[in-house]
């Protein structure tokens, strides 16, 4: 137990230490932002510090936090639906080539339709409610998860399944201990992508459908030409996405895919 806790703590510290690279990238972004501000002026691009100040003001306001929470809830609800349905159908398609052959052209059609078109359609179907946001996310994010799950299962190492069969693992055991683990490799990056899509689509759908949340607040900022306020909402939405991604998806991925670190030349040597 102590060894497991020490291992987790070491991985967490390692992750935090790797944050220097992220901070360096952020510093570069802020430098470019500041340069843009000095070139184009305050109206087009407010300076980063003013934006951070506006973000802080929003963050400490309970009303703003409520809006952010609403958007995050909608995005997560849509993401959960998309992740679950995409993974289930993808896994079935991975095992059944006939389902895969049927699904491929459908996916091409679905992926070819821009999310904004889905927003218009779902607005007409569900009105200006949270269901519009969730349905748009479901349609936009499911294909990514589906393809990853299907590819993960279809390209699995079947030799491992045969090995498990020798040691008396039934179909369910082989699925749980072997196939699902192999599908996890392509699935996690797809889930991170789907989560990002969920937040983007949620804000967009809220804005167009006038359904409140961060999208609604952005629409108000646009109407009042309040650029710092609009940028502050964008920053808050990105922070919410980062919190969910690094609080939920990445720890799960680190837990399941931790062995890959051992393959890196600087990896964990025991």
């Amino acid at each position: 137990m102590t060894r497991i806790l020490a291992d987790r703590a070491a991985r967490l510290l390692d992750f935090l230490w790797s944050g220097w690279a992220g901070l360096a990238a952020l510093a570069l972004l802020f430098a470019c932002w500041q340069a843009g501000h000095e070139t184009w002026g305050d109206f087009i691009l407010p300076d980063p510090l003013a934006t951070l100040g506006a973000t802080w003001s929003l963050a400490i306001s309970s009303e703003s936090r409520g809006l952010l929470l609403l958007t995050a809830q909608r995005a997560l609800a849509g993401f959960t639906l998309a992740a679950f349905s995409g993974a289930v159908i993808g896994i079935i398609a991975g095992y059944a080539p006939a389902v895969m052959r049927l699904a491929r052209p459908l996916l091409t059609v679905v992926l070819g339709v821009p999310p904004i078109a889905w927003i218009v359609l779902t607005m007409m179907w569900f009105g200006t409610s949270g269901a519009t946001v969730a349905a748009t996310i479901l349609i936009s994010a499911t294909p990514v998860v589906f393809v990853a799950a299907a590819e993960g299962i279809a390209s699995r190492d079947r030799g491992l399944g045969t090995m498990a069969e020798v040691f008396r693992y039934g179909a369910l055991g082989r699925f749980w201990f072997i196939d699902l683990r192999q599908a996890a490799a392509p699935l996690f990056p797809a889930l991170a992508l789907a989560l990002g899509t969920s937040f983007k689509v949620a804000v967009m759908a809220e804005m167009l459908a006038n359904a409140g949340g961060v999208g609604g607040a952005l629409a108000r900022a646009r109407a009042m030409l309040d650029v710092p306020q609009a940028l502050a909402w964008v920053v808050l939405a990105v922070i919410a996405l980062v919190v969910v991604e690094y609080g939920l998806i990445r720890p799960m991925q680190a837990e399941i895919e931790g062995w890959r670190r051992a393959a890196q030349p600087w990896g964990v040597k025991k």
Binding site: D157, G159, L160, T162, M163, I178, R181, I256, E257, W259
Partner: peptide, 9 residues
């Protein structure tokens, strides 16, 4: 088997 068929994870 001819290949070890170990679980990489």
């Amino acid at each position: 088997f001819q290949e070890p068929r170990l679980l990489p994870w």
